[in-house]
Design a protein around this nucleic acid. Structure first.
Length: 332
DNA sequence: CATGCGTGGTA
DNA sequence: TTACCAAGCAT
């Protein structure tokens, strides 16, 4: 059922990185000559060709990267991939696209159906926002996913990353696409540290913009290529430096791979939190098609105060609709 | 700008 | 087992 995502190279070689304007490889960058000065135009050009060549050979064959997929398909995948691993997204993405192949299809259905289809992807508010985005696209953009970064940013659930990702991947525009993978690759390869700061800094944005290839098409492939490198090789834990195409160019490697120095990286606790209770409550609502009585919800969490607070939160978020005294359902 | 927001896999 | 991590967003 799930496609092989580990081996198949993608058919995304059209970018022809070495021939693209703005990435002409200088003679000094090849062979055994002295390495290019970090940050120089030569170093940047070598970075581009190295990553783009690696991507041409190693990209996963993911459905939202298939030739000819709609911008809507890209947008759906980006929503689902916000904090959820590719492997878990794949089946949900296929089911979603089959049921709602266009924004208008989703907009015509109830938001609760989106929440139900979201299943166990987590952070179900994303389902609600994707539905709201579909409504906005249908009502304000004639049912066509806007290709403008600012217009994308105005859509519910679309932040800086997703707007840049859709504009880049779907519309082949030139944008700095800064996700957790890209930030980590740049932190290591460029800044020489193991992990980026908690919050994205202005310096990171500057770096990302400066490293952007000149032409839009190449920049779009570069964006997904760096991301893929971070996802497959330059991973958060246990990076495969030995197999990394940037081994010879990596600042972190040159520095002797010093361990992370900064403040403790916050771990997300979960056991016993409102989030866990919300998850349990919503699971009942998802699986029961139709209305659910309070008693059914009371079964999933023993502590009444926290239980009520969690339910109130779900209602406040629009994920649950009260339909009467002690009666609830997914939003219609 | 730090925090809340799900769920499951991995070391 | 606990802790961390996974293509963020909204407030």
């Amino acid at each position: 059922m799930v496609a092989d995502i580990s081996a198949a190279p993608a058919a995304l070689t059209a970018a022809a990185p070495s021939g693209a304007p703005g990435s002409a490889a200088p003679a000094a960058a090849s062979g055994s000559a002295a390495p290019a000065t970090p940050g120089s135009a030569a170093a940047t050009a070598l970075l581009h060709t190295t990553v783009l060549d690696w991507y041409a050979e190693n990209a996963r064959d993911l459905p939202w990267r298939s030739p000819g997929v709609s911008p809507w398909a890209v947008m759906v995948s980006e929503f689902m991939l916000q904090q959820t691993p590719v492997k878990r997204v794949l089946p949900a993405y296929r089911a979603w696209m089959e049921r709602w192949p266009s924004p208008a299809d989703l907009a015509a259905d109830a938001p609760g159906e989106a929440v139900r289809m979201w299943g166990r992807l987590g952070y179900p508010r994303r389902a609600l926002r994707l539905h709201a985005a579909a409504v906005a696209i249908t009502e304000e953009h004639g049912g066509v996913v806007p290709d403008d970064h600012a217009a994308l940013l105005d859509l519910p659930g679309v932040g800086e990353y997703t707007a840049a990702a859709v504009a880049s991947f779907a519309f082949r525009q030139r944008h700095a696409v800064l996700d957790t993978n890209v930030r980590r690759v740049f932190a290591r390869a460029v800044s020489g540290v193991e992990y980026p700061a908690q919050a994205t800094t202005a310096a990171e944005r500057r770096t990302a913009v400066e490293l952007l290839p000149t032409t839009a098409e190449t920049a779009a492939t570069w964006a997904v290529a760096v991301m893929e490198l971070g996802a497959l090789v330059c991973t958060a834990r246990g990076p495969e430096c030995a197999g990394c195409p940037l081994l010879a160019q990596c600042a972190w490697q040159r520095a002797g791979r010093p361990p992370y120095q900064g403040p403790a990286r916050r771990g997300q606790s979960y056991e016993g939190t409102d989030r866990q209770v919300r998850g349990k409550l919503l699971a009942v609502l998802r699986e029961a098609h139709g209305e659910v009585e309070q008693a059914r919800l009371d079964e999933v969490w023993h502590e009444p105060v926290q239980r009520a607070r969690a339910l109130d939160g779900l209602v406040a978020d629009g994920l649950v609709e009260p339909v009467g005294p002690g009666l609830y359902r997914l939003p219609t």
